[in-house]
Simulated assay, not measured.
Amino acid sequence: MITSQSSLRRSERSRRATLDAALELCTEKGYGRVTVEAIAARAGVSKKTIYRWWSSKGAVLLEAFVDAFVGATPFVDTGDIALDLRTHINSAVKLTSTPPYGPAYAGILSEMHYDDALAEAVQEQLVGPRFAAAEARLAKAQEQGQVPAGADLPLAVEMLYGPVYYRHVLRKPPQDEATVATLVDHVLRSLGAAPDGPRGALPGTVPRPASGDLS
C-alpha cells in the first residue's frame, strides 16, 4: 500500500512538472518551437512518460490550459446573472490574453485546424463542458425569473463567447471590463431579459461607453 501511494504521488509530480514545463517553454519560445523532447528535458521526465499520458505536445498544453481555465472561470451564482456573466467573461479574457496561458491557447487554436485529434479533445475537454456550464447558469437565471422561459440559451452562450474568440483569433486587443459589460448587456437584452431598477437597467449592468464596440 505504501509503495502504491508513493508511486501515485510521483506520477502526479511528474504530471504537474510536465504541464508547467510545457507552459514555460510555450511562453519563452512560442507554441511552434516547443517539442516533446524539450518538454521532457525541462520537466525531468522521459519522452516515454509523456507519450504514455499524452498523444502530442498539443494534448499536454491543452490539459494545462483546461486545468487553469476551469479553476479561474467558475460560474458562480450571486443571484445577479449580469454580474456573474461579467465576472466569468472577464476572467476568461484575462486568462486567454496573458502568459503563460495566452500563448498556449493561441497555439492550441491554430494547431487544432491541422490536428483532428486535438480538435476533438478541445471540444470534449474545453468547449463542450464550458458551454454546458454556461447554459446551466443561464437556466438557473430562468428559474430565478431573470431570463425568459423561451430564451435560446445555446445561442446566448455562442453570443457571449463569440467576440472573445474573434478578438483572440484576429489578435485584436482583448476586451476591457467596460466592453465586457456592454457585451453581457446586449446578450441579456437579446434574450428578452426583463429590465430591472429605476432606470430600466438589467441586474448588475454598468454604464457602457458610447462606442459600444463588441468586435
Rank of each mutant, 00 (worst) to 15 (best):
V36Q: 11
V36T: 15
V36P: 00
A38C: 03
A38S: 13
I39E: 11
A40H: 08
A41C: 01
A41S: 13
R42S: 08
G44D: 10
G44R: 05
K47R: 15
K48M: 12
K48S: 15
T49G: 03
Y51R: 09
Y51Q: 03
Y51F: 14
R52C: 00
W53L: 11
W53V: 02
S56V: 02
K57A: 10
K57S: 09
G58L: 10
A59Q: 13
L61G: 00
L61E: 11
L62M: 04
E63D: 15
E63L: 01
E63Y: 07
A64M: 04
F65C: 08
D67W: 07
D67P: 01
F69D: 06
V70T: 14
A72Y: 03
T73S: 11
P74T: 07
P74K: 00
P74N: 04
F75V: 11
F75N: 10
V76N: 10
V76D: 12
D77R: 15
D77E: 11
D77S: 12
D80H: 07
D80P: 05
I81H: 00
A82W: 05
L83Q: 14
D84W: 08
D84V: 01
L85F: 08
L85V: 08
R86Y: 09
H88F: 11
H88R: 14
H88Q: 14
I89C: 06
I89V: 15
N90L: 12
S91Y: 08
S91N: 14
A92W: 08
A92L: 14
A92N: 06
K94N: 11
K94S: 13
L95H: 09
S97M: 03
T98E: 15
T98P: 06
T98R: 14
P99F: 03
P99Q: 05
Y101F: 15
Y101A: 06
G102I: 01
P103L: 02
P103C: 02
Y105H: 15
G107W: 05
G107N: 01
S110C: 09
S110F: 12
E111L: 10
E111D: 15
M112S: 08
H113R: 14
H113G: 00
H113K: 12
Y114V: 10
D115V: 01
D115K: 00
L118D: 02
L118S: 04
A119T: 03
A119D: 04
E120S: 13
E120G: 15
A121L: 09
V122N: 03
Q123A: 14
E124I: 05
Q125G: 01
L126V: 07
L126Q: 06
V127R: 07
R130Q: 14
R130P: 03
R130E: 10
F131D: 04
A132H: 07
A132S: 10
A133C: 00
A133I: 04
A134I: 01
A134Q: 07
E135V: 12
E135Y: 06
A136G: 06
R137V: 09
R137H: 13
R137D: 01
R137P: 10
L138W: 11
L138T: 08
A139K: 15
A139H: 15
A139S: 12
K140S: 12
A141K: 04
A141D: 09
Q142G: 00
E143Q: 13
Q144A: 14
G145A: 04
G145N: 05
G145R: 06
V147E: 04
V147P: 02
P148V: 08
